[in-house]
Amino acid sequence: MDPNETRLTDGVRLPAPTAWPVVLAFGLTLVFAGLLTTAAVSLLGAVFCLAGCVGWFRQVLPHERHEMVPAPPVPAPAVTSRTEVERIEIAREIHRARIPIEIYPVAAGLKGGLAGSVAMAALAMLYGLLSRGSVWYPINLLSSIVFADALHLPETYLTSFHAVLLLVAALLHLVTSVLVGLLYGVMLPMFPRRPILLGGLIGPVLWSGLLYATLGFINPLLNQRIDWRWFVASQIGYGVVAGLVVVRQQRVRTRQFMPFAVLAGLEVPGILEGKEEERSEPQ
């Protein structure tokens, strides 16, 4: 083939058809087939192979054989009935449904978590007071996550004060509350329309549902002692308070809005409008 060929008026040169490739392929297949049948088949295949190779060489040496085919008529110019071209507008605002360009600082999550923990603790102790006449009951239940044997003891034990259990329960409660508060701080900007609905209601209800469905398998004794209405109420109390505290904090801009060149630390003039304006101001 001649890659430089562009226009021929009296015909086009193409490689001439030839039987030798199929002869060689047939011969080679027979050589293989002889391994499966009898040596005579391989011998016949070798003859075909030899003939195929010789014939093929003579097709291309000393000069490749060609045939002239008539040049087809030049087709009509390409046209379209769809003459109108619509350009898709590229929005000036950056759409960021999932990665916000403004987020809450870490401190917002900490504050929200701590505030939520107070609300949850208050509701839980109210439950203990109303149902068992003791604020220590929910505290001792929480500590049974670590001290599993506490659940085997009589209820009087669970309704009385124990310093170690209080310490363990407080630690569990604070660590978990702060971690969930931090999670709220990260997640709530991703759902900017109704953060309290998500963080204060939907999240706690889903979490409570998951626990309700699985706690019976994980810790059946604890499951028997939980009043699920109060549990859901305390979760919602935590969520609403933590959410309210978080959303009242001042947001900070992330580096997401910056051009790649800035993020990569490149010194490129003109990539930040503000800086350019500063430079162009008269001294």
Partner: peptide
């Protein structure tokens, strides 16, 4: 206008075809 090696192209097809028949 065609593949770079038209005869090799034919050989390749027939090898594939005979392989399946075998």
């Amino acid at each position: 206008r065609d593949m770079a090696f038209p005869r090799l192209n034919a050989f390749s097809f027939w090898m594939t075809a005979f392989g399946g028949l075998l």
